[in-house]
Design a protein around this nucleic acid. Sequence first.
DNA 1: CGCGGACATTGACACAGATCAATAAAGTGC
DNA 2: GCACTTTATTGATCTGTGTCAATGTCCGCG
Lengths: 257, 257
Amino acid sequence: MVYFMTSSKDEACGTVCHGNVACQDCSLHQLCLPVGLDSADLALLDRIIRRRRPLRRGEYLFRAGDPMRAVYAVRSGSVKTFTCSSDGDEHVTGFHLPGELIGLDAIGAAVHPRSARALETSSVCEVAYEGLEELSMKIRGLQRQLLRLMSREIHHDETMMILLGGMAAEGRLAALLSNIAARVGERGFSPRAFHLSMSRNDIGSYLGLAVETVSRLFTRLQAEGLLSVQRKQVMIHDPDRLRRLAGVCGDGAYQSR
Amino acid sequence: MVYFMTSSKDEACGTVCHGNVACQDCSLHQLCLPVGLDSADLALLDRIIRRRRPLRRGEYLFRAGDPMRAVYAVRSGSVKTFTCSSDGDEHVTGFHLPGELIGLDAIGAAVHPRSARALETSSVCEVAYEGLEELSMKIRGLQRQLLRLMSREIHHDETMMILLGGMAAEGRLAALLSNIAARVGERGFSPRAFHLSMSRNDIGSYLGLAVETVSRLFTRLQAEGLLSVQRKQVMIHDPDRLRRLAGVCGDGAYQSR
DNA sequence: CGCGGACATTGACACAGATCAATAAAGTGC
DNA sequence: GCACTTTATTGATCTGTGTCAATGTCCGCG
């Protein structure tokens, strides 16, 4: 039996209550859109942002096909994006942690190509897209950060393509866990022990594996002493070996700035 | 024995000689960065673009790890982007046709994360990135088009993730062929008969399949009467059925504007 | 023109991971 | 606290593709 010493549910990454703070006071401002902006700029940015009531687990942020009027920044909790194929079952395209932007794939067609729903109670900032476009013309740092975030998303998605096209099941899970660990770490929580807000089903869908395979892999990685897992609580014992298993996809697009 | 009536090698998509024309006179200006710009804007854009001598087949445009100073627009020919894993073999991340931008994944880290080399004799416009950033602050239409192109790339990469994570071999190839057909069509060539500039190896690497599987699939699709293929010449007989095989990944991110 | 190397095709076989099925454990509501 | 649903785990079997091997075809070069 394994006990976890860190992050009870209430202090897990992203579930801290941020209240209705402005960007200026948001603890995520060094990860999110505000990077590189001064207070005057932040005040302008705040004007195009609406903080909505928190989403409950399972609630939709938007649905595939909705007209795109805003992009969204996760403020707390976590959100998944996914498509539904004609025969009903869904395919997960991303997991989004606090400070990350959602909806950047919708700018091209002005329509959201995927749906987004909360994996747990989550709050989200709605950034009016017209305003964002407008403001990026005025604030160089904002334009730069927006382009940077989009570029990193492209890089991350390419890495996923390499992962899905080139790696066996074990490497895929190792890469996902390494990546989540790194992102959790960036947000000031322990990258060694964290809570997985998504189900095994979601993980399988995201990694192109059957649920059963995901489950077996967790068991195997635990047996090999790489990590301990108890339902959704994960503790990484050997991050290096995990990263090695993940090969070129080990770091993810989120580690560098 | 099957004969192809269209597109001899010299008129194939992208191999037309464009000379050293300015954006204003470039036949690709309704696909590339210039979308929505007037002549005055185009003159400014031209100032940050350098047309380089054509690349020969196999020549590198840049290598993974190179500092990012520019993004590139394919003007003629075609280019692949790829990573090399530690053990030497490469994984293809994209095929790029005339009018498409390369290097957008490098903005975030200011370093190219992948290598790019020409699949055939190709010419490329080099767009100085600093200049582009600068100019997008001044020209609203340019900023808008840059964001649109990046967003579409994200959407396309997500579609590839769904493809690689969710579809069997046949669906993957069908999706790639549908996608290439659509892009070739957008460029004014027949979407029914075109030349594949990449090798079976490249296709396999891109789709996460063994070369042998790709080969067998071509044979099978031909036997089923969906298409005819002779080495690199492809003729699509039943585009609808091909798209149906490709499922949700049938259209690709390139068809709509 | 013919030789050599790269690329493509085809066949035989093996295996990673999907699928089917059953059980267990954890939430959730009354 | 107890049924009920959902989610996770484990086992047994089946199959699509990868791998290995051999052959065929094209293309560039001397």
